[in-house]
């Protein structure tokens, strides 16, 4: 029993970090906006890590899953606006729809792109978000380029007070919960045979194959899991927080790049990494935009080069190496 429980110790620092983040946000005036951004980055990184970190494949079209998640929530809220009795149930349905749509998209993308390896996979995915954006605009899906604005519907379903609280507070809490859930799933995977299979294929796909591992299956599992969390992040952080959606905003490759920076900075394939990366990235981006406006991207470009050259395993990767021989090691994964 004890050793079974020990496997879950690494969740402790994760939960503590989220708790501190929450308490700081609630008790320091004027900081909730920053905390909300940080929570978004944490959840984004944690979700992306399940794919990028565990398989070593870089998906440049990742933001598309957040985008379709946002559309999933938007569709649920606008479509069910007449059923006021459903109340909060609409949000639950919205999340379900977001997950389903992100899963379907990831299966479609994965079926084609996951047959490719390494750099070829990355190249194949670059166009996914752009392609999807132009599909929505060109085929006039979901109102095409004029987007969807559903503040009124949200007010109608939840009532003006609750809708306001959802936009300013509960959406962020949902993002927090999604981030924690993604971390829990990451750890569950790490502790199971899925984790072993993913580690093997990340290190050497040919070797994994001759060990009898069905590599495609496990890549798809990681891809779908990661995508469905992304869908939920989009639904909570973009659709509920700001109840409108425009294709150019939700299919912006910029967010994918941020997710890659966060995961690499913190440590790809580690449990804590995305969280650490998100906090470092989010806080420094916030202060850089105040003190050196316009230079953030330039500075992050340099930072990412330095990281890849000096410590490719990221902050948590380095920490893991340093704590290998002491008592802290069971907390850091």
């Amino acid at each position: 029993m004890n050793s079974k429980l020990k496997k879950y110790y690494p969740l402790l620092p994760v939960c503590v970090a989220y708790l501190i983040l929450f308490l700081v946000g609630r008790n320091v005036t004027g900081i909730w906006q920053l905390v909300s951004t940080l929570l978004f980055y944490c959840a984004l990184g944690q979700a992306f890590n399940i794919f990028l970190g565990m398989t070593g494949y870089v998906d440049f079209g990742y933001v598309a899953f957040l985008g379709v998640g946002t559309y999933g929530m938007a569709t649920a809220v606008t479509g069910l606006a007449g059923y006021e009795g459903l109340g909060v149930g609409v949000i639950v349905i919205g999340f379900a729809l977001a997950v389903i749509m992100a899963t379907l998209l990831s299966m479609a993308v994965g079926a084609v792109a996951l047959r490719l390896r390494g750099a070829y996979f990355a190249i194949a995915t670059i166009g996914v978000n752009e392609g999807f954006r132009y599909l929505i605009e060109g085929a006039n899906l979901w109102n095409g380029s004029s987007g969807m604005i559903f503040t009124a519907e949200l007010n109608q379903i939840l009532g003006r007070d609750l809708a306001g609280r959802v936009m300013t507070f509960w959406a962020d809490i949902l993002v927090l919960i999604i981030g924690v859930a993604a971390a829990v799933v990451t750890l569950l995977y790490m502790n199971s045979k899925i984790g072993y299979a993913l580690t093997a294929l990340r290190e050497d796909e040919d070797a994994a194959k001759v060990m009898g591992i069905h590599v495609t299956k496990f890549k798809i599992i990681a891809f779908i899991t990661s995508a469905s969390f992304a869908g939920m992040v989009g639904a909570a952080s973009w659709a509920l927080k700001t109840p409108y959606v425009f294709p150019p905003e939700v299919f912006e490759i910029h967010y994918t790049i941020e997710a890659i920076i966060i995961v690499m900075l913190g440590g790809a394939g580690t449990l804590m990494g995305p969280l650490v990366g998100a906090l470092i990235y989010g806080v420094s981006k916030y202060y850089l935009s105040i003190f050196l406006p316009g230079f953030q991207l330039f500075i992050f470009a340099l930072v990412i080069i330095v990281i890849i050259v000096l410590f490719p395993e990221g902050v948590v990767g380095v920490l893991k190496g340093k704590t290998r021989n002491n008592r802290l090691k069971q907390l850091i994964l």
């Binding site: 093997a200 290190e203 050497d204 040919d206 070797a207 194959k209 001759v210 009898g212 069905h214 590599v215």
Partner: peptide, 24 residues
């Protein structure tokens, strides 16, 4: 038959070059 099922049936391949996991 897919590769992983062949391994299950008792066929093994030692690939050319050193396909091992260096960090383990």
């Amino acid at each position: 038959t897919p590769s992983h099922k062949k391994v299950h049936k008792g066929m093994a391949l030692v690939p050319e070059g050193k396909h091992l996991f260096p960090n383990m």
